[in-house]
Simulated assay, not measured.
Amino acid sequence: MTTITDIEIEDCDFSNPEHLNGICDLLNAYIRDQMGGGTPLNKLQQLRLVDGLNNHPTAIVLLALAGERPVGMLVAFENFSTFTVRPMVNIHDLIVLPEFRGLGVGRKLMEAIEIRARGKGCSRITLEVRHDNVKAQTLYVSLDFQEADPPMYYWRKNL
């Protein structure tokens, strides 16, 4: 049985086929999850995904590995805060395979992104979470994240 001490966090190596396959497998697992609610990526979309992340100038992709197997992933992007006049990091995805949930994998990924953000001199880390994803909210609160003051909404316009 895998324990949290068996999990290592690494920056994605875009020259490693296991990492690239892991990105796609993890994202598709997340999309199929009740919190994802979408259609899994086809092979062409998967190629575009890993190429897009590899070539995005501010992408940060962290993988949680159980041995060589990717079992969790955090995708974030560095941005710039005009209010703090410093860089910031926005977490876009936090994914842990269902059979590895509850072991602290998400916590290790979150702690790793905080270390990287502090190292870059970032003023904050932001994320969005579904109002019905209580497990994720519990993790974020335990790591000192809190709802924005004043509360914010996440709005979008699909194009």
Rank of each mutant, 00 (worst) to 15 (best):
T2Y: 00
T2C: 01
T3Y: 14
T5G: 09
I7H: 05
E8D: 15
E8V: 08
E8H: 12
C12F: 07
C12P: 13
D13E: 09
S15E: 14
S15M: 04
N16Q: 03
N16S: 11
N16A: 13
P17T: 13
D25Y: 04
D25I: 12
L26Q: 12
A29W: 03
Y30R: 00
I31A: 03
I31E: 00
R32F: 04
D33G: 05
Q34N: 03
G37Y: 02
T39G: 00
P40Q: 06
L41E: 09
N42S: 10
L44E: 12
L49Q: 07
D51H: 14
G52H: 04
G52Y: 02
L53M: 10
N55P: 00
H56Q: 06
H56S: 05
A59P: 10
V61H: 02
A64W: 07
R69G: 01
P70G: 10
M73G: 05
M73A: 14
A76M: 12
A76T: 13
F77V: 02
T82V: 05
T84W: 07
P87M: 04
M88F: 11
M88P: 01
N90V: 05
D93V: 08
D93W: 08
D93L: 12
L97P: 04
F100H: 14
F100C: 07
G104R: 06
G104S: 04
G104D: 14
V105S: 12
R107L: 11
R107A: 05
L109V: 02
E114S: 04
I115P: 02
A117F: 11
R118E: 15
G119H: 13
S123D: 09
S123A: 06
R124L: 11
E128M: 08
V129A: 14
R130K: 15
H131M: 15
K135W: 05
L139F: 09
L139N: 03
V141F: 04
V141R: 04
S142M: 04
L143K: 05
F145G: 01
Q146D: 12
Q146C: 08
Q146A: 14
A148Q: 04
D149R: 08
P151Y: 08
P151T: 07
P151I: 00
M152T: 13
Y154R: 13
W155I: 10
W155A: 14
N158P: 00
N158K: 12
N158I: 15
N158E: 13
L159R: 11
